[in-house]
Design a binder for these strands. Structure first.
Length: 283
DNA sequence: CTCCTGTCCTGCCGGC
DNA sequence: TGCCGGCAGGACAGGA
């Protein structure tokens, strides 16, 4: 589920459930996530009010209101999901429900993560940005600090493929396997091109493609590959608009493209991960 | 430094 | 039907 659009959809779903509410109690059923949930986590957050929820890359950071000086970092990993139960709903507990936030109005927020690649840990509010991974992260693709020029600069000297470079969170934050493939298709750039060979004019197209595909995906509620994507259980539907991702062998959506006559969208493996692309339109 | 590979963990799907 | 291999939206350590 979770690349930037899915994480942003989750963040927006969390706002009405958490904001300006006190965490009355926190139940940690498993602490052995990607980063262990520390023993003091509950005590650090219980009794505090959630003042803000922001997103950085694929991370959500929740900030407690004064006098607390704590924030918490949430990452969904590969299989992380959030379910919200409003006070009128019956709460059920499923396998792999690892952490439950109980709010002072009776709302329950459940972090569910079968593979346990996710993370939930505390960080001081004043210093979270200055420590890893945030201190190492590239620009927000939907923010003002991102442009073709900035992207071109980040690709300079990088001998990895442009596809691998887009997955590097130091180059640009929040892009994952799906949207890297989709953005490269939209920009007409082959995923196998060396990052440092991408010209400024191409980097500009790519930066616009990244912005465009991420924005559209957020509006569509993200992509749901399996199971639900959103905090209320609704499905995202951007997966129906994939041009190349998971579409091996099918013609790309450009009506005039002749790729269908020669096998359509191709799947290759780059640094251990699937890449999908149109061999005709992406050069 | 940069880069590539393997690994963490569980579930699901397709093939036999 | 059941078993097994391969694959999955991410990130990081360790070694070349």
């Amino acid at each position: 589920m979770p690349e930037l659009p899915e994480v942003e959809v989750v963040r927006r779903g969390l706002e009405p459930a958490m904001l300006s509410k006190k965490i009355t109690s926190l139940h940690v059923r498993r602490r052995d996530l990607r980063v262990p949930v520390p023993d003091r986590f509950e005590a650090m957050l219980e009794g505090s009010m959630v003042q803000a929820l922001e997103r950085r890359g694929k991370y959500i950071i929740g900030h407690m209101a004064a006098p607390s000086s704590e924030s918490f970092v949430l990452h969904l990993g590969m299989s992380g999901r959030i379910r919200i139960y409003t006070p009128d709903q019956t709460v059920e507990t499923l396998k792999h429900d690892h952490v439950v936030f109980m709010m002072d109005d009776g709302t329950h927020i459940v972090f569910h993560d079968p593979r346990r690649f996710g993370m939930l840990y505390p960080v001081p509010t004043i210093s979270w940005q200055s420590q890893p991974p945030f201190s190492l992260m590239g620009p927000e693709p939907l923010g003002n600090g991102f442009s073709g020029e900035v992207l071109h600069g980040a690709l300079a000297g990088r001998r990895i493929s442009i596809k691998a470079a887009l997955l590097d969170q130091r180059v640009v934050s929040g892009v994952g396997n799906i949207y890297a493939c989709e953005a490269l298709y939209m920009a007409g750039i082959s995923p196998e091109r060396s990052a440092c060979d991408v010209r400024l004019e191409e980097a500009d197209r790519l930066a616009h493609a990244i912005r465009s595909v991420l924005t559209d995906a957020i509006e569509a509620g993200g992509s749901t590959l399996k199971d639900y994507a959103q905090t209320d259980g609704k499905l995202g539907y951007f997966q129906h608009r994939f041009s190349v991702y998971d579409r091996e062998g099918r013609a790309c959506p450009e009506a005039s493209c002749v790729c269908g006559e020669s096998g359509g969208v191709r799947r290759i493996v780059q640094s251990g991960r699937s890449t999908f692309y149109c061999p005709v339109r992406q050069v």
